[in-house]
Amino acid sequence: MYAFDIERPTTIADAVAALGAEDAQALGGGQTLIPTLKQRLAMPSKLVSLTAIPELKGVCVADDGALCIGGGTTHATVAAQAAAHYPALAALAGGIGDPAVRNRGTIGGSLANNDPAACYPAAALASGATIVTNARQMAADDYFQGLFTTALDEGEIITEVRFPVPDRAAYMKFQQPASRFALTGVFVAKYADGVRVAVTGASEGGVFRWTEAEAALSADFSADAVAGLSVSSNGMMGDVHGTPDYRAHLVKVMTKRAVAAA
């Protein structure tokens, strides 16, 4: 790793101030950033750790019934504390990485990084979640902007994520067994006003909504409803683990499994 300074502010305000320095970088749980630093793929002058900020942590239910999760909440905490309110989200959190990774990695870190094979982006997009930062609120539909790209500005911190709780939902991940990232993962969420389907791990553009499946499932919430649909392999990722055609095929397979499990 290149040398850098590290700060551990205890309030959001202090963290925002610290991130105003040139080449400063927020450090969430570090489960992606620290390996990236070891590979010298990033060279911040200062890391601002967000792990000592109590107001960034916790799970609660808002007056409108939405599940609110602090940006610095670990996957393990979400897996344990969201289970009663939003079981599909808790199950997703409990399937990220391994136990030690889940004890450090955070929802805000995952969403800020927007890895194209990460699990949380699928949940946020399929739930129509609201991404709350120190400066503003963004709809998930506006937040995700492609591979490792989000609407976050420099130095902006995700303070909370608000998930409207669906009537039924499930996340199905075809796991890349070495990394436990999604080779393809599909989150299906059924709300009173329609069904949302978000796909991670498949597209070169990162997480996306499969709108044809949403229309079909809004009319008929059954695995058979998507049987006649097909997914183009154009723009799908291809690597040693799976070709674009394979991933396109998995989108439909995992959608059907998610509907069946919801």
Binding site: I6, L27, Q31, I34, L47, S49, A76, P99, N103, R104
Partner: peptide, 15 residues
């Protein structure tokens, strides 16, 4: 009290 990978956490974070 929580299991973590000590290679993926900075010493300063354990202050």
């Amino acid at each position: 009290g929580e299991a973590v990978k000590a290679c993926t956490m900075f010493a300063a974070e354990a202050e």
